[in-house]
Write a protein that binds this DNA or RNA. Structure first.
Lengths: 143, 143
DNA sequence: ATAATTATGATAATGATTATCATTATATAG
DNA sequence: CTATATAATGATAATCATTATCATAATTAT
């Protein structure tokens, strides 16, 4: 999702883009494809705005997630992580390496069969979340 | 996993089954198919042992999960939920109703294609976790 | 019977997150 | 342009789920 689309979305939701919020959003834009915790976002944002508060970062991340500019998920450690939602309604999955902790994305949906099955059972599926746990190619080779 | 299998597993891990631990395990056995939070387990266990402590419940749940007697996962609300692992190594998925909050299970794996794809890319997949979000048949009909 | 080890329960502590509030910044009305 | 209203911020208190600590109890080993 290019910056223009994001700005349009924020505008249509009357979301004022203050300096602090821009800083948070820029951190996420500069870290496309990465999954950052709130604290990591704080440290990055403080490089731009040394006085930005943790509460502001939390509020901003939460709001951007609710506006579907960001995805909010939890991998390990009872801590939320955020990533830029680069494609509206596109769903990718994640693979987490149990050795080095790297979080990568898996393209391809392939859940149609399961969702069809649930449709058949009367469910109305809105969203899904799929995570694989294992070892990345680098750590697989090391073993 | 019948009680016998569970007891065998605990025994081979030298896990002493005290009265308190039995109470927690019984709560999980009596709630097969349900996903209980630690607090819910506490309230149920207190019907059997009124003085059981929350710390004991947490310690027991954590240990049983590590022994793969229970599954530990998180659905919503930043709180872990536990369920009886009824079939060793069997992986089912979950569907969470966004209206009533009910958590149901989805049989059928169907992730082989994605896991094959990851194998091809050099990953070694150990585990996965799949959750669907939507509306259950009852709430779907109400809408 | 005694000593050592394990388990328990109460509660303090931890960490992530959210609520509160005084202050600051921005938008709107006059 | 000024005054007022509203929104945002940052510091910090509060919340919540979970874990750590510790004194005591229970169990096991000698």
């Amino acid at each position: 999702m290019v910056v223009d689309v994001i700005n349009a979305k924020l505008h249509e939701n009357s979301y004022r883009l203050t300096g602090q919020r821009k800083a948070v959003l820029n951190v996420m834009l500069e870290n496309k494809g990465r999954h950052l915790s709130a604290e990591e976002v704080l440290w990055e944002a403080r490089k731009i705005l040394p006085n930005i508060g943790i509460a502001t970062v939390y509020r901003t991340l939460e709001k951007l997630a609710s506006l579907e500019v960001l995805y909010k998920s939890m991998f390990e450690g009872n801590k939320y992580r955020y990533e830029l939602a680069e494609n509206e309604k596109h769903h990718h999955h994640h693979v987490l390496c149990l050795a080095c902790g790297q979080i990568s994305e898996v393209s391809g949906d392939l859940l149609h069969e399961l969702e069809s099955k649930l449709d058949d059972q009367g469910y109305k599926i809105i969203d899904h979340e799929l995570k694989f746990y294992g070892y990345c190619p680098t750590c697989t080779r090391k073993q």
